[in-house]
Every structure is written in structure tokens, then in C-alpha cells.
Design a protein around this nucleic acid. Structure first.
Lengths: 112, 112
DNA sequence: TGCGGTACTAACCGAAAGGTAAGTGGGATG
DNA sequence: CATCCCACTTACCTTTCGGTTAGTACCGCA
């Protein structure tokens, strides 16, 4: 996980946190409430188990996501946003709106 | 430049646009006004010429940055935000603030 | 000629990120 | 026993990203 060392500004640091192919989507999926692993996977078409757990582990290390292990069979592990993660998601709202509004343009530009 | 094809949501698309080691910093540097290549490079400690031009080209392709070539000697090329780029920077403000406020925590978490 | 200014391009390489496939553990059930 | 549930882990490989190095073009000037 290669964040460059000292960050030049807040934006640099924040963008680093959500960098990772599936992180933004995971954060968004958890916005609506806690999810079990398989639920998360179903909500993120195309993600492999390996990539999902990897990115969840990183988000957990960054204290954005909380992982709760339930001692039961079958096993149950639940992921939810920490307060820190919730605050990040709040800060991401305007960016998400912007992306939604300009989706057609972004897509067109990326296809050339 | 690996944006995954269809985006699942606006956030996914927007985060893809600023993904790239130097892009957020470049967008931020241009926030205050147009810059020539060398000026940009001086404002971004650690960036190589190759990386700078590469990321500028991508930002240009995404229509976030405008490149103006002046026919003179020595050569002068000026980079500035497009209106589209300005709107993105506006949407990034809350995220930048968030990052600034939580810088210590982000840095601590990343060092473990 | 060499040197400077400015803004690149190209070749090559190593590191990092992402992915596929196979396997694990602890049960419960037929 | 085999099969299922759930949530992972591991080995290996491919692709992408970021970086280093050398070079280019077009001048102006000593």
C-alpha cells in the first residue's frame, strides 16, 4: 500500500485514502449500513473475494471501517463505517454529486 | 491509464479522475492561476519532468486542464484549469478540508 | 562551436497493484 | 463420507504505474 510519505496538502492525503480500485465503492456501500462480507461482495459486481478482503483490511487499518467478528457458525463478520469513515463519506458527498452530474462527459473523455 | 470501464456511481468516476500520483496536487497548484511547465514543476517538489507531463496530458485528455502553446523562443506553454476543472476543484474543497483537519490521524495510521 | 532557456519524447526497468485459482477452518446436515 | 455455509489465506502471475536516463527541437548569445 503505497501512500507517498509526507503529504503536501489535505487533498493529497484524503485522495490517498480512497485510492484503491474498490475503496470508494466499498465506502459508499457501507454508507447505508453495516454489511456482511458476502453482502458487500454482492453489492460490488466484479470484485473478487481476494480484492474485497484486501481493500477492507486497508480501510480497517486506516480506521475508516470497523470489523466485527461474531462467534457463531456459520461464521459472521460484519463491516461498518467508523465515525472517522462517516466523516470522510460526508466530505465525499460533493465529489460524488459532481461525478454523477458529469458522468456522461467523464465517460466520453475516457473513451478516446 | 486504467479507469475501470463503466462506473458504478459518480464517486467512482470522480475518484478515478484524480487518481494518479500527482494529479490532485497539480489540480491544486492550478487553482491559484495558470502556470508554465517549469513553474508547475517547482511548485511540486519531487515530481520528475516525465511524470509531470504525463499527468498533465491525462488531465488535458479528461478536459480538466487547458494547454496553451505560445509561439516564441524560448518556448512557452501554459497550463490552466478549464471550467470543468474548476468545477471539479470546487467539489474537492470539502475533501481537502477534511484531509487537512485529519492529517495527523491519517499520517499516524499510515505509519503502522 | 558550446551553453543556456523551455518543454518535451522515448527506451527501459523495477515496484506496486490487481487478479485467478486453489485451498483452509469450523461447524451443520443428509 | 460428501456437501454446504461463511470468511477468509496463499501461491503465482499479469498488468499498470512511477521512475531514471538519455536525447530532441528551436532558438539566442558569447
Amino acid at each position: 500500500m503505497a501512500g507517498h510519505g509526507p503529504y503536501s496538502c489535505g487533498l493529497d492525503a484524503a485522495v490517498d485514502l480512497v485510492g484503491g480500485k474498490w475503496k470508494a465503492l466499498i465506502l459508499w456501500e457501507l454508507h447505508t449500513g453495516p454489511r456482511r462480507f458476502a453482502e458487500l461482495r454482492r453489492g460490488l459486481p466484479g470484485v473478487s473475494e481476494k480484492m474485497l478482503i484486501q481493500q477492507l483490511r486497508e480501510l480497517e487499518a486506516d480506521e475508516l471501517v470497523h470489523r466485527e467478528v461474531y462467534r457463531q457458525v456459520p461464521p459472521k463478520v460484519e463491516y461498518s463505517l467508523t465515525d472517522f469513515g462517516v466523516s470522510l463519506n460526508q466530505a465525499l458527498l460533493p465529489l460524488g454529486d459532481w461525478g454523477e452530474r458529469h458522468m456522461a462527459r467523464i465517460t466520453t473523455n475516457r473513451c478516446r
